[in-house]
Amino acid sequence: MTSKQRNSVADGTAARERVGTRYRDPALAEELSHVTWNSTLDVMLSHRSVRYYLDQPLPANTLELVVAAAQSAASTSNLQAWSVIAVEDKDRKARLAGYAADQKHIHDAPLLLVFVADLARLRAISDERGHAGVALDYIEAFIFAIADAAFAAQNAAVAIESLGLGCCYIGAMRNDPQAVANELGLPDESMVVFGMTVGRPDPAVATDVKPRLPQGIILHRERYTQIDPELMAAYEARMREFQAEQNMRNIDWTEQTAARIKDVAALTGRHVLTDFLKARGFGLK
């Protein structure tokens, strides 16, 4: 067997394993086993949220390397309308955790990254140049700031995992947005989009890759299509299998999803975000 053939076999095996784990769909795993595989795909398809960390510091310059990866993400018109705040102080992490459902991994992780949709910097640049900055008063500006922060964060997550570290997004940073803004000294026209814990995963706590919806539900070709009940039923079965393996509560994904959006209480304080944003100077026209 030639070197090229050996690589092809290895690539096919890796693709089959990673796709199979992500979707629990043997047919799709076999179909994609013929693609050209690489280490980037391997990292991306192996993603899992890590909530248990070793009590160890990160390697030197990890933060700067991760931020370099984050800044390499796409940005709307190169406006770079985002910022990230690195929090390592234990007391500050504890206070922020208190605003975010007191999640233990915020306390335990050596690093908390807080991603910010940041129009304040653009406003300052506009003022310095003597322009009115009218476009910043429209919801489009808010959307591109959120998008830029999300692009950057996902690049950061891939970089973190490529280094053998783990991370977990913290959407609960929006539960009490004013308290978080005060703690971090955020200026008007900026808001926290989410946090991200970073650390060395604790190998004693095994977490598997969570199955995602079938591509037939997510991927639409040419025009939008409605949910295929058979595909959804297959996904429910895969999720129940995953829940049993992880000793999680057995519940249909659709029921869990519907409960997450059923009423205002399900928003865990985030129903005030529109008022919060307007009070902080976002125009949202």
Rank of each mutant, 00 (worst) to 15 (best):
T254F: 04
L184I: 05
D275A: 15
A141P: 07
A101D: 13
D42G: 01
M196S: 06
V209H: 01
M191Q: 12
E88F: 00
R238A: 06
L267K: 09
S39Y: 01
I106P: 03
H105A: 01
S75C: 05
K93C: 06
V264D: 11
D137C: 00
G98N: 03
G283Q: 07
C167D: 14
L65F: 08
L65W: 10
A68Y: 11
D137K: 08
R16I: 00
Y52V: 03
A153W: 12
D275S: 14
I170F: 02
R223G: 00
V134W: 13
V35A: 02
Y52K: 12
V198A: 07
R24P: 01
H271Q: 15
R92D: 10
I106R: 01
G164T: 07
G166C: 02
M44W: 12
S46F: 04
A157K: 07
H220A: 07
P110E: 05
D127E: 15
R24K: 05
E245V: 11
Q71E: 15
I218W: 01
T40E: 10
A29E: 05
I227K: 03
V134D: 15
E31K: 13
L277D: 09
T76G: 12
H34F: 09
A204N: 11
R280H: 15
R6W: 13
L136K: 05
L273M: 15
L267V: 05
A234V: 04
K93V: 06
A27I: 11
I218D: 02
Y52A: 12
L41R: 06
L113D: 00
I160E: 02
L41Y: 14
S33P: 05
S190C: 08
W82D: 06
S72H: 14
R240C: 07
P57Y: 07
Q256H: 13
A150K: 00
V67S: 07
T2D: 14
A10P: 00
Q71T: 14
G216P: 03
V193C: 07
R280P: 06
G283M: 04
L54V: 03
A181R: 07
I170H: 03
D263Y: 05
A97W: 09
L267T: 12
Y235F: 03
L213S: 02
E64R: 11
D25E: 04
A153H: 00
L32I: 06
Y52C: 00
N155C: 02
Y52N: 13
H47W: 07
E17L: 13
D11S: 13
A14Q: 13
A237I: 03
V50C: 05
P187V: 07
R240Q: 11
E128L: 15
P201Y: 06
N61M: 09
P214Y: 00
F282R: 05
M196F: 10
Y235C: 01
E140T: 12
V192C: 01
